[in-house]
């Protein structure tokens, strides 16, 4: 465990906590894409099936359980508990255009042709694009609350920090996972436009609003 990995994980944890707090305190899921959150629930579920087959550490197990659990709570909040505040009219990204190609790619390009490995690969690929419905929603409504921006920044930073972690692990541990690295690059690149807006607007006290 290096510093980049640890800070990355903490950033991921923070993103999830920010999102849950936003929903709980404001009693609203306005501005949050339920589709992205469903995709994240699928990502965690398919990635952490190794909880049943291997034990790495208490840290590893508790983080995995936390990520799976909170992803379902988030989906529950959006589609049940705070459903009246969910803005489904603006959450219109077609997720089948992500799931189908990503599923096909995981089937074709993986480290090992076994069920768990293919599902792990699927989750890595899917995570890299799972934020698209959310980014689509922000661009469609043309704005994002500050708290939603903080959430997106923490969530995007997590994979960017993992990239540094992989560079570190490559040099000091000889560890290299091409699938994770390529997907991690794609994922981080998708956030670049948002990062720019976050730094130039949100950090200066303005909320993100895009010209119509």
């Amino acid at each position: 465990m290096n510093i980049f990995r640890l800070v990355g994980d903490m950033s991921h944890l923070l993103a999830i906590i920010i999102l849950l707090m936003k929903m709980w305190k404001s009693r609203s899921v306005a501005g949050i894409s339920g589709k992205s959150q469903i995709l994240f629930a699928i990502v965690f579920t398919t990635r952490y099936l190794d909880l049943f087959t291997s034990f790495v550490s208490i840290y590893n197990t508790s983080m995995k359980v936390f990520f799976i659990g909170t992803s379902y709570v988030t989906v529950y909040f959006i589609y049940q508990h705070f459903k009246p505040t969910y803005d489904s009219n603006h959450d219109t990204f077609r997720v089948e255009f992500l799931i189908v190609p990503v599923g096909g790619l995981a089937f074709l390009v993986n480290h090992e042709f076994s069920l768990l490995e293919i599902l792990w690969t699927f989750s890595i690929y899917l995570e890299s694009v799972a934020i698209l419905p959310q980014l689509f929603m922000v661009s469609k409504t043309g704005e994002a609350e500050s708290i939603t921006s903080h959430y997106l920044f923490a969530l995007g930073s997590y994979r960017a920090l993992y990239l540094l972690n992989w560079i570190y692990r490559y040099y000091f541990e000889g560890f290299f996972d091409l699938i994770a690295v390529v997907a991690g690059c794609v994922q981080t690149i998708l956030y670049c436009d948002f990062f720019y807006l976050y730094i130039t607007k949100v950090l200066k006290g303005k909320k993100i609003s895009l010209p119509a």
Partner: peptide, 10 residues
């Protein structure tokens, strides 16, 4: 230890 491993990461 190579590519198939890596599940220590989240």
């Amino acid at each position: 230890k190579g590519e198939v491993e890596g599940k220590d990461e989240l």
